[in-house]
Amino acid sequence: MIPAAFEYYRPQDMAGVLAILEEHGDDARVMAGGHSLIPMMKLRMAEVPHLIDLQDVGGLSDITVEASRIVIGAMVTQADIIDSAELTAAAPILREAALQIADPQVRYMGTVGGNVANGDPGNDMPGLMQCLDATFTLVGSDGERDVPARDFYEAAYMTARDDEEVLTAVSIPLPSGGYAYEKQKRKIGDYATAAASVQITQSGGTCTSAAIAMTNLSDTPIFSEAAGAALVGTALDDAAIKSSVAAMLNDIDPTEDNRGPIAFKKHVAGVILRRAIERAWSRA
């Protein structure tokens, strides 16, 4: 498993990155942790004549918790997320989700930016970021722009990011209330059979807001607005959860693979979501 030959660049700043992207267009790609990209290159499923390593570009590895939002640099790794007490205090769902990604070695290398930019429906962070209503900051030669996570994903490996843009940070409005990241997989190191992110607030036993997103159940992550809406204003009784699950099932479109056929995936998606809602509610 040897990748095709390529040129390697390790620019020291974003201007350097953008210049190479501009020069080589489609033939150039940035690499963060490389733990999605390198396996694809080794299998020769991705050909990257010009590979731009982002590791030396400054300012991409910070975690900042502000009064109303959290900003996570694109090069922050899953391990960094797990280790950050400040982040865990502010948005514990991030740690809960990160711990369910891959294995320890991969988590040291895999980055938030790579995970959300990759566009693989199996990645866990995109759904999570949709649930948290995060915004992705993209920078290109024309400057910076922000795209909501909920508008970012178009199809498998197709996102709103232009080829010449780099994702620099993820901003998350400070979440409140109860949370849960629930994932079923065949073993450690596997992508989700089905996963659900849920963030819920309540007041006096009535649900005041609910955000729900599902992973690996369509060719993009699925933010199910209807599933969340079904919970708001209820006391999270069985009927409310049932209608939330039904709404979610309407929104997903899983395909058959080695993890199982469509009927199974839908059923598990429902079970996983119910459990996530119940756990989030118990923490709300």
């Binding site: 390790r10 490389g34 390198i38 080794k42 390593d53 391990a79 294995d103 070695q105 991969v106």
Partner: peptide
């Protein structure tokens, strides 16, 4: 060779890394 087994694990600057999924250049 696909970063699943860990047989190639080494420590790089304090991190456990699967060295089959890192270029020497990195």
């Amino acid at each position: 060779e696909t970063s699943h087994c860990g047989a190639c694990t080494v420590t790089i600057d304090g991190k456990s890394v699967k060295s089959c999924t890192m270029f020497a250049a990195q």
